[in-house]
Structure formats: structure tokens, C-alpha cells
Design a protein around this nucleic acid. Structure first.
Lengths: 166, 166
DNA sequence: GCCCGTCACGTAATAACATAACACACCAAA
DNA sequence: TTTGGTGTGTTATGTTATTACGTGACGGGC
């Protein structure tokens, strides 16, 4: 497993967390939202990984840091983060991931690698989406869309190829 | 709640179940699959509703009919049905629904009405899908896609309108 | 200052969803 | 007849999520 893929690419991870948290801080101030210690720490925890974490994983780390140890502690923090666009829930995995493009209004699509567990978040143009076309023709009004694909990421495909050569 | 929407349209429900089961029977015979009593009954149960049922809902009905009463009984039947294209799992709901287009190879998209709980299954052209475009450009190989939209169905939108007039 | 509303956080308890592991019955192939 | 595969049943357990309730912090109106 590659512990370090974002969008399946290597990158300098060191500044991700701090930068993203700082930006979240600014956004919350502007919007009158409270990025409280639990919420901020939960966001950091998600940012430390470029994969999806279960609520109970997050909870365990929060509680290590002196926050509450009961499920609602994690679920409430994750709720706040998802409602306000700082994180997303990956339905297929029943798990959460920090948003890779906070600030933008977007309908994210996720690519989930079943080999290395990396999750990439892609921006989509909602108006062109299949779901929207379907909704338009049927008269359905979409409030939220889930777009998730499971499969193999480029890195793991390459590794497979390498493995085959042996 | 409208208990009877399929694709959000009224329809003659009486033959749905029998027809679909008969077709599943034929398909299984051709494919060498065993549509055993539990599996057949589970399929009927899903077909009786045009909405998604939780595994435990299915389990309760199976056990009323004399089948086992423990979770694996339901999960195994649902596994069989989903693996072989007779049913789908709605990830957003952790629930299952009978396939509306069995036989076709397809990447289904679902429209979930949060007002009446109806779920419509739409066919998609996988090659045109957003996810596929993204996958192509990133070199990701998709094995399974989840396309689910939550919102309000045409019926419930109409009812809302009616309610507003009062 | 005091009352009261709201919001965030904490806890315990429980609900809802899902799987592991093992036993037995059945049937078909060796 | 034995053996192996498949399907069903059970118990037990693991994982994910919510409900219900209590407390402290903060801010506005009086």
C-alpha cells in the first residue's frame, strides 16, 4: 500500500494539513461558523490521511487527544465538517474524507482504489452530469448526489504490471 | 406516502412480482444458478415494494415465512441477488431494491425521493458517464460505480405545490 | 445582575447494519 | 461409499449510527 497518494499522485504532504486547517479557519470566520477544537482536530485527523476514515477511527484519535470517547462526539464533528463542505462521506465505505477542494460549491465524484485504499476526489460539472440529465427528463429535483467509483488506481495498475513481469 | 410509485409513475403492480420472478427463474436455469426458495422469496419481497428495504426488513419477512431468522440468512440471499443482477444495493440507504431492468448489463443510477421513499432506477450509458471520463483522464480502472441522487420526486413536488395553494 | 434562549460538548444506552465461524443436509462425481 | 461442493441454519460478534439526556459557555433582553 502506498500511504501517500493524493489524487493518486505523489506530493509534498507536509503542508497539506496546516494549510487546509488555516483555510478552514478563515472560511469559518467569514461564515460565522465555529471551528471548535474538536471540529478542528477532526479535520486535521482526516487531512493526515489521503484516504477515508471510519467514524470510529476518528473517534479513537479524538479520544486519545482528550476529547470525548462516545460515538456522538465523532459523528457531530463529522456532521459539521460535511455539512459545511470541509469533508465528505464516502457512502460506499461508510467513511469520511477531507475535502480536496474546499470552498468551491461542488458535486464531488470519488475514485476509490480497492487495492491501496486511496480515494481521489474529482470535481464535476453538475449540469453535464448523467444524473442531472435523468433528473431533468423525469422531473426529479436533486438535492444531493453520490458519485463513487471503485476500481484500481493508476499506481496499483502499474504495480500489477510490474508484478506480472516477475 | 405513495406506496405505489415505480419510476415515480403509477402502474399496474399486480403482475410485476410474478413476471419478474418467472424471468429470474428462466435466467437462473440458463446460467446454471440455483434460485432456491429463500432466494426466490427474498426477490419477491423486494419486488413487492418499489422502494429500498433494509436487510433486516427482508429478514423479518423471510422468517415469518418459515425461513431462518438470523442475519446471514437475509444477507446471503441478498448477496446472491445482487451478484447476479436481480437486485441492487443502495449505498446511501444501506438497503436493497429489486432490479428494474434485470438481464441487461448496466450501470444503474438511482433517484431516491426523501419525501416518499420511492426509488427509481434509471439506465445509464456507462461510456458517456462522468465517472468514466474522469477515470479515462486519470488512468483509473473502474470495476463498479455508484450513482445515487437524493431529492424530491415529481409526485411529491406536485403535492408540495398543492399544499402551498391551501 | 439575572433569566432565558441557543449552541456545543459530554455521557450512557441502544438501534441498525454486517460478518465470522461452525454444524448439518443434500447431491453429484469419483 | 466416500468425498467435495453448495446451500441453509445457528451462535456469537463486530461495526456503524442514533436517541436521549445532562451540563457548561455565551449572548440578548429586561
Amino acid at each position: 500500500m502506498d500511504p501517500n497518494p493524493i489524487g493518486f499522485q505523489k506530493h509534498d504532504h507536509s503542508h497539506c494539513v496546516a494549510d487546509a486547517v488555516a483555510e478552514a479557519d478563515r472560511t469559518c470566520q467569514k461564515a460565522g461558523l465555529q471551528l471548535t477544537p474538536v471540529r478542528k482536530r477532526a479535520l486535521e485527523i482526516l487531512l493526515e490521511e489521503h484516504r477515508a476514515l471510519g467514524a470510529y477511527d476518528v473517534l479513537a484519535r479524538l479520544s486519545e487527544d482528550g476529547f470525548g470517547s462516545q460515538p456522538p462526539v465523532a459523528y457531530r464533528a463529522l456532521d459539521f465538517l460535511t455539512k459545511n463542505g470541509f469533508a465528505h462521506k464516502i457512502e460506499r465505505l461508510n467513511a469520511f474524507i477531507a475535502c480536496a477542494h474546499p470552498g468551491d460549491i461542488h458535486t464531488p465524484a470519488f475514485l476509490i482504489c480497492t487495492t491501496c485504499d486511496a480515494v481521489a476526489e474529482a470535481e464535476t460539472d453538475p449540469s453535464h452530469s448523467l444524473l442531472n440529465q435523468i433528473a431533468d427528463t423525469t422531473g426529479f429535483r436533486i438535492s444531493r448526489a453520490v458519485l463513487e467509483a471503485e476500481g484500481t488506481c493508476p499506481n496499483c495498475l502499474a504495480n500489477d504490471g510490474a508484478a506480472d513481469k516477475k
